[in-house]
Nucleic acid binder design. Structure first.
Lengths: 183, 183
DNA sequence: TTAAATACGGAGGGGTCCCCCGTTTGTCAA
DNA sequence: TTGACAAACGGGGGACCCCTCCGTATTTAA
């Protein structure tokens, strides 16, 4: 907020336009879209893009931030569910969300790699949510020993990257993993 | 074999040299190493590399073929193990193998994408092995309903990509998924 | 209104992938 | 052995990408 105010009007407009275009392109072509292409379609020079977003990861982060934040918010508002179900349901939802948003899975897996470090990145948001849920589920003994929040996030993201655009399969396999593949 | 005989002597040598160098480079830098760099170090022009391997995937395929074949062979020779253990153990071994060989996981996940289609690719080899193991385990009811060979391969590979160079974590998480994360 | 601060974007260096095509090299038949 | 032909080579170039420099244009605040 206070950061935004410091931007000149044109800067602010360009920045927004870039994110907007990037969201669209990334959704359509995946996380490795050409940054030049994004700049071109946003009607700015590539230098401008790079000035606003020093790394591809930084741009992706901003592109996905809102959606992820919204997703995270949902974790809090689950009325009187059992901790295990709470965790499982949210993880499932997160996986589906990630699998249906091209590029997000890759971005999450990459973590805060090459980021300004200051800001709370998507990875951290998700991780924080999971830590709480894992804690709760653990407390009632509903979790396999040794399963950490990091593990779960990694697993969910891994499944999502492997199934970009196939949320159905992603969800199914995640469920399998949660309930166990052996019998 | 009959294909190889058709190659001229120098062609054969170059081809081998390229694969050799590629194996080394991919192991050290991952699946996205520069093809030009490979060509350079192999002492051939980039055109030569592209003539031998029309796509990056084709090259990776050859780089990994032997190792994967060997891995697959191990699946057959398991003396009187229970089907469930047979499957679990092999999958674990495969995951560790994949996670310790940079670039392999990505190549396996990509599947036969852009390949000559004729030859048996690594993905197919693994899949064939898994189909047998899954069948056996299924027959004795040791597998969760709905778990397919494709699912298992995808899961194992997904975990491996997410943990390139960290086979320890990869194995741990795979085990969690096999036995179930909820309790 | 104007000077300082800020943001812009063309251009270019260094890289990659991939292919064309003139040249070299291996092969095999005579 | 030799020569002609097929096979393989690789320099070079086009198209693209990332990223940065730096002269220019715009905004802002005085």
């Amino acid at each position: 907020m206070e950061q935004v105010k410091r931007l000149r009007a044109d800067g602010r407009r360009n920045r927004e336009r870039i994110v907007e275009v990037a969201a669209e392109l990334v959704a359509r072509e995946g996380a490795q879209v050409s940054l030049e292409e994004i700049a071109r379609r946003a009607g700015v020079g590539s230098a401008t893009l790079h000035r606003h977003f020093p790394s591809r990861q930084a741009l992706l982060e901003v592109v996905f931030r809102d959606g992820v934040a919204q997703l995270c918010a949902k974790a809090a508002a689950q009325p009187g569910k059992a901790p295990a179900a709470e965790l499982a349901d949210w993880l499932e939802e997160a996986t589906v969300y990630t699998a249906t948003h091209r590029g997000l899975a890759a971005a999450l897996l990459a973590g805060p790699e090459g980021l300004s470090a200051e800001e709370l990145c998507c990875t951290d948001m998700v991780l924080n949510v999971l830590k709480v849920l894992v804690e709760r589920a653990s407390a009632v003994g509903a979790l396999q020993a040794g399963a950490t929040a990091e593990d779960l996030m990694m697993l969910a993201n891994a499944i999502a990257v492997a199934n970009e655009n196939d949320p159905h399969t992603a969800r199914r396999v995640l469920r399998l993993a949660l309930t166990g593949i052996r019998r």
